[in-house]
Computed example of a mutant assay.
Amino acid sequence: MLTEKSQWNNLYHSLKDKVTSDIMEIHEKYKTPTHYKNFMSTIVLTNENALRVENDNRRTVFLDVSPTRKGDLNYFKKLSDAMKYPGASEAFYAYLRAIADAYLDFNGNLPPMTTSK
């Protein structure tokens, strides 16, 4: 992971541009860049304070995670292996969609306030 403040700031600004921009530029080597509508969602998993955001930021959610698996390398190896299965990301997305569909009054513009945030 990055250690210098300037590196963290560069990461934050790079991620912010990707998350907030309506258009995304894809630049394949030796080809003209192409612009697409940005549908990207990003999940950052870290045990460090990776992003510096203001309390009123509605695009970023920090989830408080239980420390019960801390140091359990076997558990995280199994989790890592499971994420590599074909279709795992689609299954995770479908799971999240099912939750969203079950709570029709959910307002995605108001992020939950957590201890971390």
Rank of each mutant, 00 (worst) to 15 (best):
E54F: 01
D56M: 06
Y36H: 11
K5L: 09
N55Q: 04
D101Y: 11
I23T: 11
T20Y: 05
K29F: 06
T32A: 08
G108P: 06
T115I: 15
Y95G: 06
S66W: 02
M1V: 14
N49T: 11
V19H: 00
F39E: 13
I23M: 08
I99N: 01
L51Y: 02
E90N: 14
N38D: 05
I23A: 05
L73F: 13
N57K: 05
H27N: 12
M24Q: 05
A91T: 15
M40H: 02
N47P: 01
Y103M: 11
R58T: 11
S66A: 02
T32W: 01
K31S: 08
A98Q: 12
T68D: 13
A98F: 10
P67Y: 01
N9Q: 14
L2C: 05
T34V: 04
M24S: 03
L11R: 00
H35P: 00
M83H: 02
H13K: 11
N47S: 02
H27D: 04
N49W: 14
Y75N: 02
S80L: 13
S21Y: 00
T46S: 15
T114I: 07
A102S: 15
G108V: 04
P86S: 15
Y30P: 00
V19I: 15
P33D: 07
Y12H: 15
I23Y: 03
N9S: 15
L45Y: 00
I26D: 03
I99P: 02
M1E: 13
I43V: 15
Q7H: 11
M40D: 05
K16P: 00
A50Q: 05
A100Y: 02
N109G: 10
L110V: 15
R58E: 07
K5R: 11
T115S: 05
L73Y: 12
L51W: 01
D56K: 13
R97C: 09
L104I: 14
A98T: 10
S89E: 07
A88D: 00
E25Y: 03
M40V: 02
G87P: 02
T42K: 06
P33W: 04
T32R: 14
Y36W: 06
S14G: 14
Y36V: 08
V19G: 00
